[in-house]
């Protein structure tokens, strides 16, 4: 009985909006949503389709300007609350997505993506150019993207897979896992969490992996040319292949692989540092997890 009442109430208070507007190359998509979700799927049409599930008190405003399509909810009474957006946008369209208690998901974009939320996950598959993904309370995941990548969360993990370009990834409490990375500039740091990197070490590149409480594991390809600096206060260093330490000071030592033209800094205050070949780290992590 209660379920029936709830279903009737839901039917009464929810509403669907479905609007499609034409767009021109160069235009940007701006979406602002307080609560709910924003899901954007890229398609090969020069149009933006906005499908929204929302309260009947709210109205979805799709504004088309000279350079932007802006999507937001307006309420007849008070503030618009929960809106579930399903948006289709051209692959070339840059997007700027903002939420508060909002999950954000983007799939198939081939342009820049800015996605920021306070309480919610951010998942982006695809993207090119400037990619800025941020959350406070939610995991951030980026896959199959290239460009200048800036990823930040506070209380969850960061995962990057098959990504190329400059990478900056930060969290406070959470692991950071980077796999299939092709980059000459990677800066990764967390305060409480593990750091895992599996990707290229390019000549002349700069790589920094740092945590306070956690392990750091990094893969170094066979033919890499890199000077590695290792620093740990309470922890051990382990390498799957032999290294010859050249410079040592308290809490830090370094060694050179090949010509040493790239620079890698591996730091953890409380934790171990592991160096392996690509593919070995996954096996090693798997074994370590089984041991625990």
């Amino acid at each position: 009985m209660l379920l029936n009442v709830a279903a009737v109430i839901t039917l009464v208070v929810t509403q669907q909006t479905d609007t499609t507007v034409p767009v021109r190359p160069g235009m940007r998509l701006d979406v602002d949503n307080f609560g709910g979700e924003i899901v954007v799927r890229a398609w090969n049409q020069n149009a933006v389709r906005v499908q929204a599930t929302h309260s009947s008190r709210d109205r979805i405003d799709v504004g088309v300007g000279s350079s932007t399509v802006s999507v937001k909810a307006e309420s007849r009474r008070g503030l618009a609350q929960m809106v579930e957006y399903q948006i289709s946008a051209p692959t070339w369209m840059e997007m700027n997505l903002h939420g508060v208690s909002t999950d954000i998901e983007v799939d198939g974009a081939q342009a820049g993506v800015t996605a920021e939320t306070v309480n919610g996950e951010v998942k982006v598959r695809g993207g090119s150019g400037q990619l800025s993904l941020k959350s406070v309370q939610g995991a951030v995941t980026l896959q199959n993207a290239k460009g200048h990548i800036d990823v930040y969360t506070v209380n969850e993990e960061v995962t990057l897979e098959n990504v190329s370009g400059d990478v900056t990834a930060e969290t406070v409490s959470g692991d950071i896992s980077l796999g299939g990375i092709e980059s000459a500039s990677v800066e990764v740091s967390t305060v409480s969490g593990d750091v895992h990197y599996d990707g290229t070490i390019k000549d002349g590149g700069h790589y920094r992996f740092a945590t306070h409480n956690g392990d750091v594991s990094v893969s170094v390809p066979e033919r890499a040319n890199v000077t590695v600096s290792v620093a740990t206060f309470n922890g051990d260093f382990d390498s799957c292949f032999p290294v010859s330490v050249t410079n040592t000071s308290k809490h830090r030592f370094s060694f050179t692989i090949g010509s040493g033209s790239a620079r890698a800094e591996l730091e953890t205050f409380n934790g171990d540092i592991k160096l392996c070949r690509p593919g070995q780290l996954h096996d090693k992590r798997h074994n370590d997890q089984e041991d625990h």
Partner: peptide, 16 residues
């Protein structure tokens, strides 16, 4: 909830 998360994170950093 957000304040709680931020507070916990600040505690984590302060501890470090």
């Amino acid at each position: 909830a957000t304040v709680r998360v931020l507070t916990q994170s600040l505690v984590t950093i302060d501890s470090a």
